[in-house]
């Protein structure tokens, strides 16, 4: 049996979980799904889900990774699941890590390719923030796997399943909820969020100072964009870390990313690889960013940007 651990957001099955459901048929045998808290079983039918295992413990309605991990561990054991699949999300990776530790099981996270060869699953995982891939094998039973939702498009099964709901009981103590979510504090959002901006202007070491970022702010203002930076810019204190683009920062996907004085280290580029266009401004013709950008301008950004801003102002009539 293959168990798919699915997640819902505001009552709706997440798209990432649809990706996870889509790979389940590859492992052969019946597909069962499991969700914590109340879950809509109907939406699971098209994915060939035969049974929906419902863990009847209302305490799990609030995120509690320790208790959830224990519940998942118990369900995997009692239902004799051979393979467990989920989407590679922060919550699923955390919960499956806990289940894996309790069972002393193998767990491959962030998989981008999977194939089954008898008792072995051959897999490819996204590593280094997605700039490189690891090939590995998972052996033993059960095998826990989370899949990178970007690598597997949601796909319905050839035949729908009954998605029959079956209550499963798990034994959880109050102590298992010791690290449950306590509260949610509202953050404040200022300006255009970097992650969803249509235009991003980024600055790196080549900016030279915190003050120099005011020209990027000005250009971003004119183009309705957001300002970001490299790790050098955040490490130097020129920008706050929330503006960092890259492996350990934010992933951006704008129509246009204008990267100024940024060399193009792979850890930076994985953060902007979903940009439709990258215009790189760099004074070094050998800078790696010119290998990954769609457009390049060679030269000193301190000359180019003010001249560009003048022209943009003319067009905008400001």
């Amino acid at each position: 049996m293959t168990l798919v651990y699915v997640e819902y957001q505001d009552g709706a099955l997440t798209e990432a979980s649809q990706s996870a459901l889509s790979v389940a048929s590859m492992f052969g045998g019946p597909i069962h799904a499991m969700a914590l808290g109340s879950a809509d079983a109907e939406v699971l039918k098209p994915y060939g889900v035969e049974k929906v295992l419902h863990v009847a413990d209302d305490r799990l309605n609030t995120y509690a990774p320790g208790a959830a991990g224990k519940a998942v561990h118990q369900v995997i054991s009692s239902q004799s699941a051979e393979t467990v699949v989920a989407a590679s999300t922060a919550s699923a990776n955390e919960i499956l890590s806990r289940a894996a530790a309790l069972g002393d099981w193998g767990f491959a996270s962030a998989c981008t390719e999977l194939s089954v060869d008898g008792d072995v699953v051959n897999l490819t995982r996204a590593i280094w923030g997605g700039s490189l891939f690891q090939e590995a094998q998972l052996t033993g039973s059960p095998k826990l796997i989370t899949v990178d939702p970007n690598a597997f498009a949601p796909q319905q099964a050839t035949a729908p399943g009954a998605a029959e709901v079956e209550a499963v009981s798990v034994a959880l103590d109050d102590a298992d909820f010791v690290d449950q979510l306590k509260a949610v504090e509202k953050g404040e959002q200022q300006g255009i969020p970097l992650a969803s901006a249509k235009v991003v202007i980024g600055g790196g070491r080549g900016m030279g100072s915190e003050e120099a970022f005011s020209i990027l702010e000005e250009l971003a203002g004119l183009l309705n964009g957001a300002v970001g930076g490299s790790r050098v810019a955040t490490n130097n204190g020129w920008r706050s870390h929330s503006d960092q683009i890259g492996q350990t920062g934010t992933q951006i996907g704008p129509d246009v990313y204008i990267a100024c004085g940024i060399s193009g280290a792979i850890q930076h580029m994985v953060g902007c690889k979903n940009s439709k266009n990258i215009i790189a401004i760099n004074k070094d013709a050998e800078a790696p960013i010119f290998q990954r950008a769609s457009h390049g301008v060679l030269g000193d950004l301190h000359e180019i940007l003010p001249a560009l801003i003048e022209e943009v102002k003319k067009v905008k009539g400001v």
Partner: peptide, 29 residues
């Protein structure tokens, strides 16, 4: 290990060439 390391794989390069727009402020147009 339960997950056995087999090797690494580089991502596929897009192969797209960068379009150079020029040098210095002369590139602004």
């Amino acid at each position: 290990p339960k997950m056995v390391h087999k090797g690494l794989k580089l991502p596929q390069e897009s192969g797209d060439q960068v379009t150079m727009l020029g040098e210095g402020a002369a590139a602004v147009p």
